[in-house]
Design a protein around this nucleic acid. Structure first.
Length: 418
RNA sequence: GUGAUUGUAGCUUAGUAGGUUAAAGCGCCAGGUUGUGGCCCUGGAGACCGUGGGUUCGAGUCCCAUCUUUCACCCCA
């Protein structure tokens, strides 16, 4: 039984629905291209160490959600639980910092693995589109990345996915903020949940993200990161907000988004929808100025985001976005005489070479069945060749839309189906 | 990891208070006289009733376990 069942939390994308994926993938490529980002493809798995260092070994993702195993050479390998670390690794390994900066890259349909309990909009394997921009510290880089996401959403027909923005500061201002937060929480920490008690020591920032009601209540009036930014971070954030306003983009400052990956600094943002259930973050990203250094490179600023294909598709469906169906088949060849098959094969090749989408019967069905089949797979024309036509050197060409049918010469086919 | 939920033909479902050969619609395949689709008609294939135990003379229908589905928590795309 198990061998005919996909593992929990994974999904097949079937031939009948693949056009939906192609549709958004094409828009992603086009949009990235307009912003002059270039595609990068990196491995599906990396050395576990990369994620421990890059994503952070106190994060939930690394702690309990990674698909980690030892390969036959005793290397610890992990299926990537997010897209950025692998790209950063490739950036360093291939010395892309020696190329003219900034380096602007994207990836499409990149599989991401996390051991989670599946639910609506959440899977053990999902696919991400993502953007990484290396080398620019300007807030205009943040704006560019955010605008790319925004444009993309618009291109796929989504206008009501809201942008939530925050700044969580940098290593310079973080300690002061953590101090302020701890000072505020200290009196109430007893009433908070177990994980928050731990976070209080290891990563107080993440307490802001806690969903336990009692914790949320306490956190509600906690100091905000945006009020404790150092001069540089504050200026950066103000510039970003300024550009977005200038561009007429709506956003909401959400002091509680902190993101679950340790590499983020300064800007963090999410595009959130309330139409697809509890897992409403369609796109999440931010600035990660420490990542490159963290994994062994010279310090280099960077910004990026990841966008979930499955969630995007769900959101589009919820919004009633109409995705164009694949093009019809131009010509289907029906045969009523074995001797016609070679001729059909030749005609078929001619049509295909000329750029048409064409098929022939390879099931040896009756003419009636061939017609029924042609109808089901949606053809513009059926070209019928039986012994009569074979003799006369003609083809019976039937329009499946109008039902009209005419006999044409063999060599008139290309012209007739245009 | 926690809580709840689901599991009958490819799909959507029906299966009486447990009782003989498990139904239907859609889909699929084939026919409906001489070489032809979309409607209609007829026929056919297709289900070890998720799996493994148990209760019972007898279980798709009851019990247990397990896997799976779905939703939520958590986390995140």
């Amino acid at each position: 039984m198990l061998i005919t069942k996909a593992p929990k939390g994974t999904q097949d994308v079937l031939p009948q629905e693949i056009y939906k994926w192609h549709y958004v993938e094409n828009i992603m490529r086009d949009t990235a291209d307009k912003f002059n980002f270039k595609e990068i493809r990196v491995p599906t798995f990396e050395h576990t160490e990369l994620f421990l260092r890059g994503v952070g070994d106190t994060t939930d993702i690394v702690n309990k959600e990674m698909y980690t195993f030892e390969d036959k050479g005793n290397r610890s390998i992990t299926l990537k639980p997010e897209g950025t670390a692998g790209v950063a690794r490739a950036f360093l390994q291939n010395n892309l910092n020696q190329e003219p900066l900034p380096i602007k890259m994207y990836y499409v349909n990149s599989p991401v693995f996390r051991y989670e309990r599946p639910q609506k909009g959440r899977f053990r394997e999902h696919h991400q589109f993502g953007i990484e921009l290396f080398g620019a510290q300007s807030a205009y880089a943040d704006a560019e990345v955010i605008m790319l996401a925004k444009t993309l959403l618009k291109q796929v027909g989504l206008t009501s996915v809201s942008l939530h923005l925050n700044s969580i500061g940098c290593p310079k201002c973080r300690p002061q903020y953590n101090q302020a937060l701890k000072d505020y929480l200290r009196d109430n920490i007893d009433q908070m949940c177990g994980t928050c008690k731990e976070r209080f020591e290891t990563n107080p920032l993440r307490i802001l993200d806690c969903k336990v009601d009692s914790c949320k209540e306490i956190v509600k009036d906690a100091p905000k990161t945006v009020d404790h930014l150092c001069e540089e971070c504050d200026a950066h954030f103000n510039t970003l907000k300024g550009v977005l306003n200038e561009l007429g983009e709506e956003f909401e400052i959400d002091p509680l988004i902190v993101r679950g990956l340790d590499y983020y600094t300064k800007t963090v943002f999410e595009f959130i929808t309330d139409t697809i259930g509890a897992q409403g973050t369609v796109c999440g990203g931010g600035r990660y100025d420490n990542l490159i250094e963290e994994i062994g490179g010279k310090p280099l600023p960077a910004v990026g985001f990841g966008m979930g294909m499955e969630r995007l598709l769900l959101t589009m469906e919820a919004a009633g976005v109409k995705i164009p169906k694949p093009e019809k088949i131009d010509v289907y060849f029906a045969q009523m005489d074995d001797k016609a098959k070679d001729l059909i094969a030749v005609k078929l090749a001619e049509l295909r070479n000329a750029g048409f989408k064409a098929e022939m019967d390879i099931m040896d069905r009756s003419l009636k069945s061939q017609m029924k089949y042609a109808n089901k797979i949606e053809c513009r024309y059926v070209a019928i060749i039986g012994s009569d036509e074979l003799q006369k050197g003609t083809i019976m060409l039937r329009s499946m839309e109008s039902g009209e049918q005419k006999e044409i010469k063999n060599d008139e086919l290309l012209e007739a189906v245009k």
